[in-house]
Simulated assay, not measured.
Amino acid sequence: MSNLGDYQRITTLIKQLGGPKAAKAIVAAGAVLLVTAGGAAHAGYQKAAPKVKDWISKLGQPDALAGHVYTIHIDAEDDQGLAFKAGDTFRVLERDGDAVLIELIGNDDNPWAVSAKFLAQVSDFPAESTETDG
């Protein structure tokens, strides 16, 4: 769960770049620059291109839980210090394995990366979602 802080930093960076679409364009432009850099870069691109293309294509595909709103049932605090109060609601933005990107409704400091297992323990977030990738 130590990578949840990384998800928060990545999310902040993507917000600063203008959102997921802008970040996707920047990554794609970077891939193009890599390809045009020369023979050595081309050899590396041949290995990385399928993975990069797959990753980029997944950026536009929302998770099945994206957009759903869930309710917190007990007061709790996650390992990042994010406090939840009974009755709070959150919207799922994206999910990757155990990391869930949420918007805590009514909180101006959004989004947050939170463990799916933690959310399943303190809310009506579905526990079976912790076993699948988004």
Rank of each mutant, 00 (worst) to 15 (best):
N3F: 15
G5H: 07
G5F: 09
G5E: 07
Q8A: 13
Q8C: 11
R9S: 07
R9E: 03
I10G: 04
T11M: 11
T11R: 08
K15P: 00
K15V: 11
G18K: 10
G19R: 06
A23M: 02
K24S: 15
A25D: 07
I26W: 10
V27H: 04
A31I: 08
A31G: 07
A31H: 13
L33R: 03
V35Q: 05
T36H: 04
T36Q: 08
A37V: 11
Y45R: 06
Y45T: 09
Q46T: 06
K47P: 00
K47Q: 09
A48S: 13
A48V: 12
A48M: 13
A48D: 10
A49R: 06
P50N: 07
P50R: 12
P50S: 09
V52K: 04
K53F: 13
D54V: 12
I56T: 02
S57V: 01
K58M: 10
G60C: 09
G60A: 14
L65T: 03
A66G: 06
A66S: 14
A66D: 05
G67F: 10
H68S: 13
H68L: 15
V69W: 10
T71N: 02
H73K: 14
I74D: 08
D75K: 02
D75S: 05
A76M: 01
D78A: 11
D79E: 14
Q80V: 04
G81E: 06
L82K: 00
L82T: 05
A83E: 08
F84D: 01
F84L: 10
T89I: 12
T89G: 07
R91K: 15
L93G: 01
E94T: 14
E94K: 14
E94G: 12
D96T: 15
G97M: 03
G97A: 01
A99K: 06
L101M: 08
L101K: 08
L101R: 07
E103L: 09
L104F: 05
I105A: 02
N107T: 13
N107D: 15
N107L: 12
D109L: 15
D109V: 15
N110P: 10
N110G: 09
P111M: 05
P111Y: 08
W112F: 11
W112E: 04
V114E: 00
S115P: 06
K117P: 00
K117C: 01
F118L: 05
Q121D: 07
Q121I: 04
V122A: 01
D124H: 07
F125K: 04
E128C: 03
T130M: 06
T130E: 01
E131N: 09
D133C: 11
D133M: 14
G134Y: 04
G134I: 05
